[in-house]
Amino acid sequence: MLVLAVVAIVFFALPFAGLLWRAPWRDAWSIVRSSDVRDALRLSIVCSLWSTGLSVLFGVPLACLLARVHFFGRAAVRALCTLSMVLPPVVGGVALFFALGRRGLVGQWLDRWFDIRLPFTMAGVVIAQTFVAMPFLVITVESALRQLDPRFEDAARTLGASRWYTFRRVTLPAIRPALIAGAVLAWARALGEFGATITFAGNFPRTTQTLPLVTYLKLESNPPEAIITSLAMMAVSFLVLVALRERWLGGITASASA
């Protein structure tokens, strides 16, 4: 059993070791500071934070709806809202095209009435990322809400608290670890998003070229730079996961074992 576990650890560690082994350490700093990598890094961070914010804003109410309200077709709605999580991201990108593109189902009216065009814009990147990332938040928060004893909220309501007050002071603190975990998962997914972004939003420095895109393109033109950008993404994700696990996610394991 232990041997298999070690095999699994090696399986996860090996690709990173490969990257570290091939990394051009001497040029690392100049590559990170080069304008296209820096632009991509900035764009990646800005867009992934936007999509995390949007995922929380829309995902938490959606999770509440799915967890608390019994309605006809709830299973189908839940499947629909988490479909993009299992779908190949490229398929998601193509679907977004036909929905929000300049000739798309909704996109053609956005273009005609409001002069809004999403492909080839930063907003397009945020939408593509949100599309694939939000389900991670929704399922995490939904499962936390399901495990939450509804009697706490009922007690608050019988004591005269309003729905909003109960949500804010009882529900939200109770699901906080799950909310943070879900947001982090969504953020990590958004940061690494490639397929839907390049399909729907295109690829251009400073507007839609995120770090994964620049990595993919550099692999052809300048492999050492691709290795450094990969390592940069890895380092950021790794640090965040470690930090969160230590500082905030402890709550999850505590409440699960209680």
């Binding site: 593109g101 080839f120 251009f204």
Partner: peptide, 16 residues
């Protein structure tokens, strides 16, 4: 507006 992955991707962006 975009630097596509190959020539067919450029064609697709126009035909779409």
């Amino acid at each position: 507006k975009s630097l596509e992955a190959d020539v067919r991707a450029v064609v697709n962006k126009v035909t779409l």
